[in-house]
Every structure is written in C-alpha cells, then in structure tokens.
C-alpha cells in the first residue's frame, strides 16, 4: 500500500494570530525551536505561514509595529492526510519548502490538522 501523508505528519501546529507582532512570532519560534509559525484567524482558519526567511523581511524595521499579517506567505500549498506521500514530497521539492500544511479533507475546509516536515522524510530515508 502506498504511504500516505497521515502516516508521517505531525499532528497539531504552533500558531499565532494575524495581529501578533513580529517580535512575538520570533520569540515563539525560538522558544519552541521551530522554523515556521502558522497564522490563523479568529475562526481558526489557516491564513498563511511565516518561515524563518519571511521574518528576515522585517529585519531593520520596528518589530513591535510590524504584524504577522504584513509578512506572512499566503496559504496556497496544502495537502490533505489522504494525499500520497510521494505527491507531497514532489510538491515540497518543486516549491522548495520544508513544511507543508495539512488541512482537513472536507471540501472548502481551512481547518489545520498538522504539518508535514522535510526532517521526518529525511529521517525515514536515513534509516531505510
């Protein structure tokens, strides 16, 4: 049986609100040792993702005046738990992203279920 995203994804994600300051987003990332932060709105729908590189866009600006919504990468690339792992990996390497947001299978849903990390795929390849 072909492996699916659900077998390797990590459930849950670390999130922040749209109006969180960049200073706080950076602190969330450092304290949790993560390289991304998912931005959600009041209804828990995914708005986008902030990566370590997108934080650099705010370098030199006032970090307490810049908000998450100003620098987030809009939510475009997502997969569902039942997508095949090969498809997900292909998407990651084509778009050169290390984290894929996993959303619910329900049509039109933007509810976040978890993330697929490049790290876990490398780990799988190392022990295979």
């Amino acid at each position: 049986m072909a492996e699916k995203v659900m077998h390797l994804m990590r459930r849950g994600a670390i999130t922040c609100a749209e109006d969180t300051t960049i200073q706080e987003v950076a602190q969330i990332m450092v304290v949790n040792s993560i390289r991304y932060c998912v931005v959600i709105n009041g209804r828990n729908e995914v708005q986008g993702i902030i990566s370590a590189r997108s934080i650099l866009k705010a370098y030199g600006r006032n970090l307490n005046a810049t908000r998450a919504k100003d620098i987030l990468l809009p939510y475009t690339v997502t997969i569902t738990p039942s997508s095949s792992l090969n498809e997900a990996v292909e998407l990651m390497s084509r778009k050169r992203i290390e984290h894929l947001i996993v959303v619910s299978d329900r049509p039109g849903s933007k509810a976040i279920l978890g993330l697929l990390h490049a790290e876990d795929i490398v780990n799988r390849m190392a022990i295979a």
Binding site: Q23, A26, V30, V31, R35, A52, I55, L56, L63
Partner: peptide, 22 residues
C-alpha cells in the same frame, strides 16, 4: 549562518534563557 540564527537574534532571547522562560 542560518536564517534561524537571525530570527533568534531578532527575538532578543539569549541562548539558554528560554528554559527559564518556559
């Protein structure tokens, strides 16, 4: 030098300080 090192610098949290914060 990684982008995460710069994020750590921008967060103004010194190394070793975050255990205490948690």
């Amino acid at each position: 030098l990684t982008s995460f090192d710069i994020v750590r610098f921008m967060s103004r949290i010194e190394t070793g300080q975050y255990q205490q914060m948690l």
